[in-house]
Computed example of a mutant assay.
Amino acid sequence: MARPPHAREKALDAYAEILRADGERAATIDAVAARAGVSKGGVLYHFPSKEALAEALLERFHEVSEAELIEMQTDPEGPSRNYVRTSWQTSEEEDPIYRAVLRLAQSSWQPAITAIEQIHKAWGDLVRGEVGDEAIADAIMLIGEGLYYHSAMPGTWTAGTFDHSIDDLLAVVDRLKKHATSSSEPYPWPPSAPPTP
């Protein structure tokens, strides 16, 4: 009997969902099969081990990351504004692959740790290339990371603690960029190709 053509994608999506919700230990082959609505044999046909699931997820992560880097580099507003703007009010639905790989990194799986480090370095390289000032680039990165952390927290405890609009923060980014270009020679922009994650 032929397996459904999208069983592989369903299993991989289910694996990512379990990782995000419950962590790496909960993401067993049995749990993936149950979540995906396919037989255990159907999962094992495509992914003979948990390691194979993790490697396939990392492949998908690299594809998504490459597309995001190109979008960040080619954004008419520049990488700094893109980074801060896309860090605002994120949700599991918007970045499911990143969050799933982050859970793998938190379980000390070295390939996931390396992948997270590489994408953060690539984002930082684009921002540094635009502003030409290490400290200002770090400040812009920290604005984005703080926004991401704030928007990713569960519950409602943060609801009344942050009342700035994204436009307010992008205006801060613009002021930082202006200071960088007035105080030092900017790096050549744009670079010839996006950094490789």
Score class of each variant (00 low, 15 high):
A2L: 14
P4E: 10
R8V: 00
E9W: 09
D13N: 15
A21P: 00
E24V: 12
E24Y: 08
A34L: 14
R35W: 04
R35S: 02
A36Q: 09
A36G: 03
G37S: 08
V38L: 07
S39W: 06
V43S: 02
S49I: 06
L57S: 04
L57N: 07
L58G: 03
E59S: 12
A67L: 13
P76R: 06
S87W: 12
E94Q: 15
V101T: 04
S107C: 00
A112C: 00
I116Q: 04
Q118L: 15
W123G: 11
V127C: 05
G129P: 12
G129M: 14
G129E: 06
D133E: 14
A137N: 02
D138Y: 04
G144C: 03
G144S: 04
E145G: 13
E145L: 15
Y149E: 14
A152R: 11
M153H: 10
P154V: 07
P154W: 05
P154S: 07
G155T: 12
T156Y: 05
H164E: 08
D167E: 13
A171G: 10
V172E: 06
R175Q: 10
L176Y: 01
A180Q: 03
T181E: 14
S183T: 15
W189R: 05
P190Y: 11
S192Q: 13
A193N: 06
T196Y: 07
P197H: 13
